[in-house]
């Protein structure tokens, strides 16, 4: 099997006249955490959706764990999972009921012990038996993370994983995800606007703008290339098109 958990080549997605993703190619090494950065409409969620098989591309090739996701997504879906603010869970079901349903969908044999583990790790025990719809945004985010970890995925795609969490809980969740990654050797692909999160969690960064990859590398390499102190400044350079102006760049 290749060293890459995710391999994307020439990925293009067109919605009518709108070119959402324009011939994007990248690889994510196994056992790493890679960030997908970009402003609104950069094509991050579209790219993640194609990786999950939720969206069919106009052109291109996508391989996850060595399987062509466009032809054999069901071979890898049991080993993947994801969370996104664009999707939700049934609101009238309790947290435990929602997680039980998904545990069964993912074919877990021992549902209850796994729910107890996740309940402890994500600190969701206090509202495990409350309807999902009555939870705060932060609590829902933690439940969504619990759902995404149910099957101990080998590839985990996270769209804004700590959105709606207060700084303390956000920090705990980042720690938990990093521990999970270290312990399991899973590959994480994170779409985020939180640059501190990216700096802390990610070994590689891909920056997108207007459907294209405009830069990629390790966080340190990007900081050096742009002559910036943090990824927030790099992000602003790219988002505002200053990356194209040589004057703003540092040594590369």
């Amino acid at each position: 099997m290749s060293d890459y958990a995710i391999s994307v080549g020439g990925l293009t997605k067109r919605f009518g006249k709108v070119l959402a993703v324009d011939s994007v190619s990248f690889n994510v090494r196994q056992g790493t955490t890679c960030a997908l950065l970009g402003g609104n409409g950069a094509g991050k969620t579209t790219t993640l959706s194609v990786l999950l098989g939720l969206l069919l591309p106009t052109a291109g090739r996508v391989t996850v764990l060595g399987e062509d996701i466009l032809r054999h997504r069901y071979r890898v879906l049991p080993r993947m999972n994801f969370t996104s603010p664009y999707v939700d869970l049934p609101k009238r079901l309790t947290v435990a009921e929602n997680l039980t349903v998904y545990a069964r969908l993912y074919g877990l044999k021992n549902v209850r012990p796994r729910l107890e583990e996740l309940s402890e790790e994500l600190q969701i025990g206090a509202f495990m038996h409350r309807p999902y719809g009555t939870l705060s945004a932060g609590q829902r985010t933690r439940v969504a993370l619990a759902k995404s970890l149910l099957n101990e995925p080998v590839v985990l795609l996270l769209d804004e994983p700590t959105a709606s969490l207060d700084p303390d809980m956000g920090d705990r969740m980042r720690g938990l995800l990093m521990n999970y990654q270290k312990r399991s050797g899973a590959t994480l692909l994170v779409a985020s606007h939180n640059m501190l999160e990216v700096e802390r969690m990610c070994t590689d960064v891909i920056i997108m703008r207007e459907g294209k990859i405009v830069d990629q590398g390790t966080p340190q390499a990007l900081l050096t290339r742009y002559g910036r102190k943090n990824l927030e400044e790099v992000f602003l350079d790219v988002a505002r098109g200053r990356a194209d102006e040589p004057a703003t760049r540092g040594t590369s």
Partner: peptide, 13 residues
């Protein structure tokens, strides 16, 4: 409940 996204990235056919 905006649940279709979760359902169709699970192994459910």
């Amino acid at each position: 409940s905006r649940n279709l996204g979760h359902l169709f990235v699970s192994p459910l056919r």
